[in-house]
Amino acid sequence: MSSVILAFVVWAAGSFICVRIAQGPGHDTTAARVAVPVLFGVTILAMWELLVRGLEVSPVILPAPSGIADRFSGSATVLWQDFLQTVLKGALTGYIIGCSIAFLAALAIDRVDFLKRGLLPIGNFVAALPIIGIAPILVSWFGFDWHSKAAVVVVMVFFPMLVNTVQGLADTTQMQRDLMKTYSASYWQSLVKLRLPAALPFIFNGLKISTTLALIGAIVAEYFGSPTRGMGFRISTEVGRLGIDMVWAEITVAAIAGSVFYGLVVLAERGLTFWHPSQRS
């Protein structure tokens, strides 16, 4: 019972400090920007730990963070193996192939207005579909190993990436294009010097959306058959065996992988589109 009370004390203290920092004079500094969300996260974790202990929640339902951390460090080799199989082989390969193909397809479509008018509405529609459903089909076509997972990821990231790139390539004004013409720039010159840079914010938007889709695709595809490793495989088997702490350890890996993946794309975006209004503050 005392842990439950302590949980609420932690909660009150955490929110009090958060409010003080946010309302205080230094709320615009980088330190405050980092400290507040971190403190928020730590408070939630501490409450979780204390409530699970205080209410004696069975670890089969919801393990405490400390239990998950134990399992995480205890099964590091298995987790690393699953990470290699799902994230690096499945998701990343598919992401690179899918985004490159979509990018090249967008360049091709962009040259033909007829195609653009036909493909853009369809691409927009397909990007909203639950494409994840093709996972079983692709698994039966390409076999159980990571190739089929990469194939699912390719299909999933293709349309968001295509639509964003095509829109980005159209994001120049008539005035800018005319200027390139007065310089007598060739198609490639105006593409490389004007239209691609102008399209970068859109391209990065597509790349960012695709990072999450890639992980989802790779994990779900494993539910339909995989060798005896991989995050999706581990999650579905451990849920069946009620090894919920292992599932949470995999979720932690997925969360870290997803955030790092997304963060890397954001860093690349900062570096390449530093001139864009959304990056200047």
Partner: peptide, 14 residues
Amino acid sequence: TIPIVAIAPMIIVV
């Protein structure tokens, strides 16, 4: 950025 599918089976168990 967390793939929700990882959590889906858990939500059902809980």
